[in-house]
Design a protein around this nucleic acid. Structure first.
Lengths: 344, 344
DNA sequence: TTGTAAGCGTTATCAT
DNA sequence: ATGATAACGCTTACAA
């Protein structure tokens, strides 16, 4: 059906064959209103016949648009990244955009410039920024200064609602606290995420604040700062599980670390959940596969990503209808085998 | 309007400030040989100072290139995808390319056309294709017909060596067979991958052939076709573990399914590895986290991806030096806790 | 070794 | 409603 021609037809071919100027063809392509009905029909027919479609690069060069969206992240969690990509792509392909991925290194002090250049080089129309990079005030500021459109995904409401999608980690951790107290646990311990991340802070405070309201206080020495890695979970669990009295419940800032706790418990012969309850955060692939399966908190990652994509495209196309108003989602508790009521 | 730094610098700015023509700057950008040493230094300095990087669209429009690489896949394994992306990106960013991701649906019969359109729409310079889509003869043929450059990543040598990176799954499974026999296992069972995938066939045959050479034959009813998912692993394990005599060893075509086997064994009170040994394939994140940790086979995914990227860029840039010769990598066995010698 | 100038396929600014 | 013509930022014959 499709005959491969030597050269792709250009707007000039369409113009010549239609007997009009290319400016008029351009009008038709872009759906401008002021084109005669007869002319439009004629041109559309020729476009059909030639199987013409405008060249994206030329279009981009002339109009400063690329129909490219960027995804910026410095996150080792492959599962999270993958979910985000799919969520964004669902929207992208429906709207005629493509997704360009850009992992970066948050710690490198070149990283802001690196991101800016990434966007400028390819004339990326807008970017979605993932945590923890999304927490960078400097990056957001630089994007604003460079007139780069962005939407951040984060755990804290730290930008205009048009520019952010927030998961209310604090509220979710509050739920977890109530659940744990309802199970009767007394000796509660926490492996937090890196304190420099807002998300860690939100989760920690959401948990501790509600605990305090319910009359339970977590002492300092029962809160250890982890690095969100499996190995770090193991280290922290070792420190926690030798304390007397031994913790009855441990919350780990993510599932990776929770898996580390499980590992240490197993090594020490501590039964989960009989002698120790554990909860994580993410609802990682791991969470449902591991034995015992992990009580955890699930963010609607894919939905957040789709929302972010919708918002960024709305910004790009100037249709900022009521998209600003939607920005907050609440993660929810998933109860599995790793938590249970205190026997006694 | 003249001295305003609002706009990003162009090749003209670099030329003007360096006091040369833009043709010379272009030479420097593209690493041409015939540029005076002093001139080059001067220009490079200015490029640095201006933080200049050439506009991809303009470059593409002029040179009929986009500096965009595509990644085509229909693979639910997020960890695999993520590793591939990072492997490809390592090379990409070093060579000035960006990566556009394109998940697709292998089963949909529009998928070939969908992929072609994806490439043409954005003038993608070349694509890397992941298994199982990479096994599609039709897709490869269509790409050839449309003069689209591609490199496939696969488990079987099914294309010109210039167009493929192959992991020798067969050889790796042969190693596993020898290892298992050395442990003294008699009753061996297999959960294969979908039979329609070449990779499943390679692994199955590599395993069975070597087993046969060593005097062990796996009977028909001990080979079950799984779907490479956790749930499918559970289903197949149930069928296998009620057989008499009960299998002493189960090979699962991937770690996801092996995790399912572990789950069922746990439910049935079968001790792993005391009463049942299990091995998987992939060296998934899961493999090292799960308890007991999983004996499995690791492909050098990231290295394969980098090699694929190197090859596709060589094709694009016409530097097909000896890159054709490198195409085969061998996965290797990782022995963990889930396999052990037969007691008795 | 370096420069001039003509594109590449669009969109945007003016006219008419 | 339509059309010349100039950008857009770069590469590349062709000179010098």
């Amino acid at each position: 059906m499709n005959i491969v021609k030597d050269k792709r037809p250009t707007i000039n071919d369409v113009a010549r064959i239609s007997g009009v100027s290319k400016r008029t063809v351009s009008r038709v392509i872009n759906g401008a209103a002021n084109v005669g009905e007869a002319t439009r029909k004629k041109i559309e027919a020729v476009i059909q016949e030639l199987n013409f479609s405008p060249d994206k690069q030329a279009r981009g060069l002339a109009a400063s648009r690329s129909f490219l969206l960027g995804l910026i992240y410095d996150n080792p969690d492959a599962l999270y990244i993958d979910q985000v990509q799919r969520g964004v792509l669902d929207i992208c392909s429906a709207k005629g955009y493509e997704l360009v991925v850009h992992p970066c290194t948050y710690k490198s002090d070149d990283f802001i410039n690196n991101c800016i250049k990434f966007v400028k080089r390819s004339n990326i129309d807008g970017v979605v920024i993932l945590p923890p990079v999304s927490e960078s005030r400097e990056l957001a500021t630089s994007f604003q200064e460079n007139h780069i459109k962005y939407v951040r995904i984060a755990s804290l409401d730290l930008d205009d609602h048009a520019n952010i999608v927030v998961s209310d980690d604090r509220a979710a951790l509050s739920d977890l606290a109530r659940y744990i107290v309802s199970l009767g646990h007394q000796n509660i311990a926490i492996i937090s995420g890196p304190k420099s991340y807002f998300s860690s802070k939100e989760r920690l405070e959401g948990f501790c604040d509600t605990l305090k309201q319910l009359g339970k206080k977590v002492p300092e020495e029962r809160i250890i700062e982890g690095k969100n890695t499996y190995e770090s979970g193991i280290d922290c669990a070792r420190q926690l599980l030798i304390q007397t009295p031994r913790p009855q419940f441990i919350f780990a800032n993510n599932d990776e670390m929770a898996a580390g706790v499980l590992k240490v418990a197993h090594e020490l012969g501590i039964l989960v959940p009989e002698q120790l309850s554990i909860a994580g955060f993410d609802d990682n692939l791991l969470a449902s596969r591991i034995i015992p399966s992990l009580t955890t908190i699930q963010r609607p990652v894919s939905a957040m990503a789709s929302l972010a994509a919708t918002k960024i495209i709305a910004m790009i196309e100037g249709n900022e209808y009521n998209v600003e108003e939607q920005y907050l989602v609440k993660p929810h508790l998933i109860i599995r085998e790793s938590t249970r009521k205190i026997d006694k």
